[in-house]
Each structure stands twice: as structure tokens, then as C-alpha cells.
Nucleic acid binder design. Sequence first.
DNA 1: ATTATATGAAACCAAAAGGTTTCATGTCAA
DNA 2: TTGACATGAAACCTTTTGGTTTCATATAAT
Lengths: 126, 126
Amino acid sequence: MAAPSRKPDVFQAIADPTRRQLLSMLGEREMPVTVISCHFPMSRTAVSKHLRILAEAGLVKERKVGRETRYRLEPEPLLELKRWLAYYERYWDNKLLALQRFVEGDETDGTISLITPDEDGTRSAE
Amino acid sequence: MAAPSRKPDVFQAIADPTRRQLLSMLGEREMPVTVISCHFPMSRTAVSKHLRILAEAGLVKERKVGRETRYRLEPEPLLELKRWLAYYERYWDNKLLALQRFVEGDETDGTISLITPDEDGTRSAE
DNA sequence: ATTATATGAAACCAAAAGGTTTCATGTCAA
DNA sequence: TTGACATGAAACCTTTTGGTTTCATATAAT
């Protein structure tokens, strides 16, 4: 599944509210562009561009049917997000957090590196 | 870049790889700007601006200590992301997905709306 | 065949994002 | 007090983003 170019990653793709709305809309059923776009206060072309960004991030798939192109949700890339988020679960346990702060004491220089997720949350592909 | 009048939401905040790296760095320990910025290939001022964006999204907190300002992770806003993501868990079950497609049959007009999360994943407050 | 529909590509534009450099201010150290 | 450090604010620049309008092409319908 290697796609190492500069395609927009999932973090970028879901940053835009319009695109999040598109995802929720396309989860239920496959839809053609014209139908999709009538739910948005912008031109069909603009929606089409958002769909392209989602497609490049792997979050939607297109399928040609006659003269229309239908899009549907492809949730798999969200797993990367889930994985990224999972790392931070440990901070939601306040007790652990408090303990950690206590153990750290008063240190200030900040040069150590404990376990971290991929530095920027971008795993090449697998 | 500047902070627009509207606060950046968490989706926006984590869209940038530098900011994700900042989060993972600040999870382990509180750190002052100068120390943080020496890990990045950009100016201290640029890092400072990223920190501001994270702070406005509630993802980091500042604390003044003498002449330095220390930042640390504040994971709570990630819960919104987790909540958003949770909706899509249902699509990761391929069997459910297949069943759904079968039930939908051949319909094409796409005007129905089944349950969806907040349309754009932005809940005012909670 | 002709016309209407569905869509993407292209050219263009304003605003936002990400970065830089310079300057002002507050705090620590001699 | 004087000077060095830590930081944020301001002004500025370039690239990206999100949108528009127009045009070309493929399919469908009459």
C-alpha cells in the first residue's frame, strides 16, 4: 500500500468542516456529485475539489456509473488517526498523569525523550 | 499566519505535522519555548506561533516561570476527536457494511439521511 | 442527429497559513 | 545599573487553500 508522494494525509483531509460533512454524508450511501453538492452552500465544482482531496487521502472511493461518478466513504485511513489518538489515551488517565508529574519532579531542561508515537503521526504506509 | 478571530478547532490544530510533533513532545514534560524550538528546523518565533494555535485550541497550557513561559500538553480537547472518530467505528466492521449495502439495494437518489454525527463534527460545547 | 445532463480541468482570485526579520518588554545575573 | 536572556508582537513575504467562472468531454434521452 505504498503511496509515498505528497498526497494529503488524513489529518489534513479532515481538517476542513466541509470535508467532514462529506464523510458523514457518504457513509450511509454512495452518491453522485450533483446530489452531494446540493447540500452545500457552494458550487458543484468546489464540492468536487473537496471530494478529490478526500479521494487522494483514501477516504472516499469513486465509481463511474453511466455519466455520473458516485462517491462513497472508505473508512480505512481513519485507522491511522485512531492509532495516533490511541497514544494520548494514556494522558486521559489523570492519576497516571499526576504520578508522572510527581516522578518528574522539578526538572526543566527537557532533553529526554520517552516513548512517543511517530514524531509527526505520519507513518509512511504499511 | 496570525490567529483569526475564530479559535482554531482541534481538527485544524492537529492538521499540521509540526504541531503534532509539538504535542508528542509536550506530553512528557513541560518545556519552555527556547528548548522546544531547538528541536525544529524553523525559528523560535515560528514555533511560538504554532504553540499559540495549540493553546487556542486548548491542546496546550502555558505557565510563566520567571522569564520563561513553559508549555505542556492538555489532552482534553482530543476527546472531541475521539468522539468524532467513534462514529466511524461502525464502518470498520466490514460485515455490517456489506449488509447495509445489501439492504440499500440499488437506490440512487441519495436524499435520505440516516443517523449521522454532528454534520461537521463540531459540537459547540460539551 | 441533436440536445440536455454530469462531470472534471483550467484559469483565476482573495484570504489564510506558515514562515521570516526586527523590535519592545520583562526578568535574571554581575 | 548594566547587560544578557526569553519571549511575544508587528510588519512583511510567499505558498497554499478554498472558492469562483468558463470550457471541454462523455453519456443519456428525444
